[in-house]
Design a binder for these strands. Structure first.
Lengths: 204, 204
DNA sequence: TCCTTTCCGTAACAAGCGTTACCGTAGCAG
DNA sequence: CTGCTACGGTAACGCTTGTTACGGAAAGGA
């Protein structure tokens, strides 16, 4: 049995390349040749690893979801309480340079999803998964809230965060990190208006 | 002087067609032929009305901005006080079917702006104009607030609204009109916590 | 060492894109 | 009615796209 390959590694390599191309060339620049060049191979390998371009796109979309899920899990696990976890999860889209890139990719996939049913399905699944996570954390923060209130707070928080991500992707100057942080903090402060036991922020 | 045409009307017709194609075929489906077919003509007229595809895109982008500005002006003028104006302006993206289309178009242009400098410039200008409008109304609602607080509230509101617009464009089921309305109302309630003189909502 | 089998780079394909050149034609002046 | 001129539909161009077919090369078994 001659010359075996690591299919999994190839698919991940190509998905990463897809991600990078999408980040700095946008959706119209996402061509198989661009992906191949970024991955350091030719379109031959791309078409052997994925049957079609759409399969590559869907796999890259899944990869984006996996990454955010892994990071959210890590942020959640590293936080001592539910408040900190919620803050970390919602803020994990503001870390550094790599994340602005992720926002750009997210916007690209979103725009593509508006005209592609499969991509739209994955977008919805990912966003609802994110909603469920945030809702769980909000519920942990405010156990006495009704379902309606939980629902509203969750979707408000998610909308705020995604809005910030979208807007900062197109205009980083108008939405600097400090503004984003402050907006998030103010929104999170809504979750604990009565009791002010201890400071949630770890630093000044 | 034979056979004169109404250039302005042609440009508007084509921009509208561009808008419609972008709304239901997405960015990759936005071709000159598709625009021409939607406008009921051929690519010949398109290329006579606009020198290039990018010029058409930019004009369509300007048209989108003009429409939202006109509608915001109308919403503002029809409101008796600053609170109502702010609510109307922020809510003007949730009216009916035509508006979901507008959100989709907005997302499409945003994604295109991530890889096109001129489109990005117009996006920034439009968003900053919107920020200025909201900030002016917030300032009218809360005259005693500091600049920092104004800035934060303004950008939080805009982020929330744009986030809702983006999310509802891709998943209308998860973000129904009532949720959006409630989220906006709750965010606006932040602007007047101390005095509770009269109800702001006009109807049930 | 040689053979076999899988891999993947090369190169071609048809289709679609934005763009261009051309010419029939429709409308006004005389 | 005739002639002129700008308009815009037609069709082609060159280019890039996704996709496919093919052949050389590399790695494990005999």
């Amino acid at each position: 049995m001659p010359k075996q390959r690591d299919v999994q590694a190839q698919r991940e390599l190509l998905s990463n390349a897809t991600w990078e191309v999408l980040a700095d060339s946008g959706l119209p620049g996402l061509t198989l040749r661009a992906v191949a060049e970024r991955a350091g191979c030719t379109t031959g390998l791309v078409m052997h690893a994925f049957p079609t371009k759409k399969a590559l796109l869907l796999h890259a979309r899944d990869l984006l979801y996996d990454r955010t899920a892994v990071r959210a899990d890590a942020a959640e696990a590293a936080s001592p309480d539910a408040f900190g976890a919620l803050e970390a999860v919602l803020d994990c889209g503001s870390d550094g340079d790599a994340d602005r890139e992720e926002s750009r990719v997210w916007v690209g996939f979103l725009a593509a999803a508006l005209a592609d049913y499969d991509l739209a399905e994955r977008h919805r699944a990912a966003n609802r998964s994110f909603l469920a996570r945030v809702r769980r954390l909000v519920a942990a923060c405010c156990p006495k809230w009704t379902d309606d209130r939980l629902e509203l707070a969750t979707k408000s928080l998610v909308s705020l965060v995604e809005g910030l991500n979208v807007l900062v992707a197109a205009d980083p100057v108008a939405y600097p990190a400090e503004v984003r942080r402050a907006a998030l903090s103010k929104a999170l402060a809504e979750l604990k208006p009565p009791d002010r036991s201890g400071g949630g922020r770890h630093s000044g």
